[in-house]
Computed example of a mutant assay.
Amino acid sequence: MQDLYGAFVPGTNVVVQPTGQGPLSGLTFASKDLFDVAGFVTGCGNPDWARTHPPARRHAWAVQRLLDAGATLAGKTITDEISLGLLGRNQFDGTPINPKAPDRFPGGSSSGSAAAVAGGLVDFALGTDSGGSVRVPSSFTGIYGIRPTHGAISVEGLMTQAPSFDTAGYFAAGAEIFAKVGAVLLQDAAPAAPITEILFATDAFAACDPVVRDAAAEPTRSIARAVGASREIVIAEEGLPAWNRAQVRLQCSEFSRTFRAWVDTYNPRFSYEVGSTLAHAALIPESERTEAALLRTAIRARLDALLAGGRVICFPTMPILPPHRDAPLSVMNEAGDRIVNLTAIAGLSGLPLVNLPLGQAGTIPVGIAILGARGSDLSLIEFARALGKPSS
């Protein structure tokens, strides 16, 4: 396979044949370089992590489940360094090309997986999502993606960074394959049930650039027509920036603890962005973490009540179009902060979210998010399959 989009980890040749036959027979997939593949080092996007860790002894749970279902693993894909990023940049392994907008970032940290799927190199791919790492690239590259209910897909054999946020998700270019993979990875989830009402989060729409709102207008009308019942709500009484701050404080506190011993022992090389992120994370006071945890508890209770009875919340997956690859660091930092205004919704609540690749701003993809009740993953996937993707 020719890696036309720089999606795969350079210098690796990871191909694993299926261990069984099943619903995914004949399909190929890629795996973000955070998932263990037996006999290979899980590099996590950083050469010093790869240097200081041995080859995996067994496959990650999700990789093994897909192999058992008949799929062939075609390679390990690039991630932002130790998964700390939202745009898809990696100064060591390279930044994958966004097949749908080559002059713009693909989104991270599951950038390679999204690029491989969007570019047709594989049928589907594994990614992870703690702060938005499936949702950002699926929206930026115009493919289906899911951040599942927290804990719905096992993270055994996955390099985790923030345990109360980490999820294993996946991408597919088409709705049918997206549904097939969901049936394999979410076998223990509740059966799909009808969506009874769409709730449009007006504050989430207001957080978006006008070009994004315009691109989302017709897709959201289609979603409303498909369900039949809809209304507008305000999702964040405290304001989405307050949710952003809570997400950042909690997630940063966790990944600071995750990486502290390794950083102290090996003094690894980092890009400026990742090094400064880790340094600032270590300085978050316990009082701010406690305050953020209290807000998270209130948010979960509020959204659980809003989504009871088969309701779904809908809003643009990203508030911005993917930034240009040559954007200055200040622009990239601003983009990351604005992105978290929307990714914090599913991150803090632990609820499942599916990106529907239904919007276009010219030739640039704009994703539409549907957020469901805890455990409603298969309902969201089935809705995505039934709605399908409009022909271009």
Rank of each mutant, 00 (worst) to 15 (best):
R65G: 01
F8W: 03
E237W: 12
N355Q: 05
L4F: 06
A292S: 15
E232L: 08
P191G: 14
A172Q: 01
R269Y: 00
P106S: 05
P10H: 02
A369K: 11
S154R: 04
L158D: 05
G107V: 03
A279V: 01
I381F: 12
A30Q: 06
A118T: 04
E237Y: 14
T220F: 11
A56E: 04
G26D: 01
P365A: 02
I364T: 12
A183D: 11
T95H: 04
F35W: 08
I97C: 02
T128N: 10
T290H: 09
A226Y: 15
S25H: 00
A279F: 00
K76M: 04
D129I: 10
D36W: 04
P210C: 09
G88R: 02
G6Y: 01
R51M: 09
T160A: 08
S230E: 13
A229Y: 12
V15Y: 00
V37Y: 05
K100H: 06
A346R: 12
L250V: 14
T167F: 08
F8H: 05
M332W: 00
N244D: 08
V212Q: 05
E254D: 11
A125T: 08
S133A: 09
V9L: 04
G88A: 02
V9K: 06
I233R: 10
A152Q: 07
F105E: 01
P241D: 10
T95K: 04
I345Q: 11
E156G: 06
F40C: 12
N13C: 03
A298R: 15
L351M: 14
M318P: 07
A50Q: 11
G85P: 10
A344W: 08
Y272R: 01
V15C: 05
G94W: 01
P54Q: 10
R325E: 05
R221I: 10
A217G: 09
V9A: 04
V211L: 07
A217R: 13
F140E: 02
A236F: 09
F35T: 13
G336C: 07
T72P: 08
R89Y: 01
R385C: 12
K100W: 01
G169K: 09
L387S: 15
G350M: 10
A261W: 02
R311H: 14
L66K: 06
H53G: 12
A242W: 07
A292E: 13
A30W: 03
P106H: 02
Q17A: 09
L27F: 03
T42P: 15
V122E: 02
R289M: 14
D80A: 10
S379E: 13
G85Y: 03
I364A: 06
I339A: 05
F105D: 01
E156I: 08
L27P: 03
A175L: 11
D48R: 10
G228L: 15
L27T: 03
L303D: 10
Q21D: 00
P47W: 04
P163L: 09
A30V: 06
A346K: 12
R249K: 11
L67N: 07
A168Q: 07
R302H: 13
S391V: 13
V63T: 09
D326L: 09
A327E: 01
E291L: 11
A261G: 10
E176H: 13
R147W: 04
L283F: 01
G310D: 13
I198S: 15
